[in-house]
Write a protein that binds this DNA or RNA. Structure first.
Length: 271
DNA sequence: TAAGATAAGAGGGACAT
DNA sequence: ATGTCAGTCTTATCTTA
């Protein structure tokens, strides 16, 4: 006996509960899954000992009903799960669109999210934060140059929380990500300031030499790229200020200066 | 005005306990 | 698991050319 139960109350907390509901609710775990499923239109098993007319149900039927009831409670959990997934997928889709992330990378992010959800990583964290981390991880692995800052710009989540979730993701999904080359940050910054290809190539050479001399480890690649561009511009007598590079790269002038000093000292450059 | 210098504070990695 | 330490980056402010 499946009874469609219409509920006109928007607040699920105020709903009249049957025993069945109470039971299924306890299985769902998180209160949030309860607040989002069904939107007040659940299909429920009420009594499984009597039919709609109050007549007793045969024992064999009751056994089958009990199994159905169990299946239902599982499917209601799965609705919460689906909802979470749908929410995350929407977010990943929007983010990918705004950051011009290729479809394949978006798919990779979605796969990461499904895995994270499956192993319970999302629990205790915001869906958006984990989804952001998945997008970032997918970009890193596919060598699509996007920073956490850029992702945070289009997300309600703070940079700090995204990076926390990102580390979580790396640990529990056992991901191996390549260290980004500073060169990959060059075109973005250079194009923003209209710096020509010749100067970009010069900056790339500077970075390559710096990498050969092992000067680049544990340094922010964007900062390195900005500093290399600054040096290249000075050499080519292209007029660019540190402030402009700072604005274009999202790295502070101080950091650019520090990298710039390191580079000219390490590579024995003279300007 | 652009660049350099300095200091305080945050966040994270490495390592030890 | 927690604490400490060195290194990095940021913010802010002041100085120099």
């Amino acid at each position: 006996m499946i009874v469609a139960k219409f509920n006109y109350c928007d607040d699920p907390e105020k709903r009249a509960f049957t025993l069945v509901e109470a039971e299924s609710r306890s299985r769902t775990g998180l209160p949030t899954s309860f607040s989002i499923f069904d939107k007040g239109l659940p299909t429920l098993f009420t009594s499984i000992s009597k039919d709609a007319y109050g007549k007793a149900i045969p024992y064999n039927t009751m056994i089958r009903m009990r199994r159905l009831k169990k299946l239902q409670s599982q499917s209601r959990f799965s609705q919460g799960y689906e909802k979470n997934l749908a929410n995350a997928m929407t977010h990943i889709g929007l983010l990918s669109e705004r950051l011009h992330i290729p479809c394949a990378v978006k798919e990779q992010a979605a796969i990461f999210y499904r895995k994270a959800l499956k192993i319970g990583l999302v629990r205790g964290h915001s869906i958006h934060a984990i989804a952001d981390a998945c997008v970032y991880a997918a970009c890193r692995i596919s060598k699509i140059p996007r920073t956490i800052n850029e992702i945070a710009y289009y997300s309600p989540v703070e940079k700090k929380d995204i990076s926390k979730c990102y580390r979580l993701l790396l640990r529990y999904l056992h991901l191996k990500v390549p260290i980004p080359r500073a060169q990959s940050r060059l075109p973005r910054v250079a194009n923003t300031l209209g710096i020509n290809m010749e100067t970009q190539k010069k900056a790339a050479e500077i970075l390559q030499e710096a990498q050969r001399l092992k000067m680049t480890s544990s340094k922010d690649p964007t900062g390195l790229a900005a500093a290399a561009l600054y040096i290249a511009c000075c050499m080519n007598e292209t007029k660019v200020t540190q402030k402009q590079l700072s604005d274009a790269s999202g790295v502070t002038e101080v950091t650019i200066r520090n990298r710039y000093k390191d580079l000219i000292r390490g590579l024995h450059l003279d300007l």
